[in-house]
Design a protein around this nucleic acid. Structure first.
Lengths: 226, 226
DNA sequence: TTCTTTTGTTACAGAAATATTACAATTTAA
DNA sequence: TTAAATTGTAATATTTCTGTAACAAAAGAA
């Protein structure tokens, strides 16, 4: 778990895309398609961050924003505004009205994710951990280093992402498809057997003799970190 | 296995989309394009939940719904209604007629999935639960592990699915055919005696000496977990 | 009892899934 | 530009799982 994110956005397709990806990242996500309902649900949900569309069918994003800032319980809720291309000039107004960051549509999920992390790091550092650890394994996302039992381990980029992925949800078993979708860049086609090879490489790197195997194979299901 | 879902919906594209995604989630899905046939097939299929379109070519969704509620075997079948945008006002009527939830088209699959989970959680908690337990037996669907009296047990994929199946409905006796249909992938032809062999394997794995047998044979009917 | 039906048990061959290796193509670093 | 590192894939090896058949045992029926 990395925290709760609420989305107010009237395009269902964007919600779907963002929600899916955020959930894959371990966030808990809820959403609403319009401003008034959104405000109500948001306050019930109690998120750590809000993604707010600029143009909504009922209220404008700014109205929503102001409403939130007036509520003492949500005065400090970080907000990232989603704006369409033509709305560049409005950005400043947005920031003045208490928005923490904005992002222009269309955006890639990676862009969005980076901003979410940045904003959360400021507001709630514990939610976005720089270091992922599991037993005697440690991964530093900032310095891109990995340690096993305090000894540094060299990993290739793909093995690094693979391990990072497992570390965000240890013990959980992931199918090859889930691994592919998350660890590999979007829309890249790789054989699902390729994962086996990378698992092997990762295993070879992180295993120390006399220590137990850290990656478990679950036949017909996938792999997990144990 | 996470349960069986039946869809009655006249737009083939929606069926396709939903069915594909639900199957990816592990549900067993069947569907029909109209009300009358749908009712018949549904009762043969025996789903845990029904997705029902409001507007059908022959019967209306409400008619279907009422028919189901009259049938004592399906009185409690959870129903989620799929309504188009303009039909907002009808919603209340829908709920009165015994619908458990509704969702407005167009919807994202995530929305639908969330509602399905919510409804199933109420009506049939074992279907969506991550952990299934029965007496001193525990099965963790996320980590794909099985424990008997806190001791981990190794199971092959088929034995795992078989036990999962029994755990979603303990005590109930299942025929070999029912087991086949649910535990084995669709359209696979296996001798019904094959099940006996897997039952034997499962028994061997989960039995502990001095502890009672957990799988009961019901002669000429099938097996159950007791 | 004796016969019939159903289930239990075992062994085994083929199938399926995973592990491992080598290699060519590509990218990155020097 | 050359060398080194990284990647994906295919081929092969190895492990594990599956289904079936054959026979044994048990339960019912007559």
């Amino acid at each position: 778990m990395k925290g709760k994110i609420f989305i107010i956005e009237d395009e269902a397709s964007i919600i779907q895309l963002v929600q899916l990806n955020l959930e894959k990242e371990g966030f808990i996500v809820a959403s609403s398609l319009n401003g008034n309902e959104g405000l109500k649900e948001l306050k019930k949900f109690g998120p750590n961050l809000l993604l707010l569309d600029w143009m909504l069918p009922d209220l404008s994003g700014i109205d929503v924003c102001k409403n939130i800032r007036k509520d003492k319980n949500f005065k400090n809720l970080p907000i990232i505004m989603l704006t369409a291309k033509g709305e560049e000039e409005d950005k400043i107004k947005g920031l003045e009205s208490g928005v923490d960051d904005y992002i222009t549509k269309p955006f890639s999920f990676n862009e969005l994710h980076a901003r979410i992390k940045a904003v959360l790091r400021r507001s709630d550092p514990n939610i976005v951990a720089n270091d992922l650890t599991f037993e005697d394994l440690k991964l530093d996302r900032i310095e891109k280093r990995v340690f096993r039992a305090d000894k540094e381990i060299q990993l290739g980029p793909t093995e690094f992402r693979l391990l990072e992925f497992f570390l965000t949800n240890p013990k959980r078993v992931y199918s090859r498809n889930q691994i592919l979708e998350t660890v590999w860049p979007n829309n890249v086609n790789v054989e699902s057997r390729t994962i086996d090879v990378h698992i092997r490489r990762l295993r070879q790197s992180i295993n120390i003799k006399d220590k137990k195997e850290l990656i478990r194979t679950v036949r017909s299901s996938g792999y997990s970190l144990v």
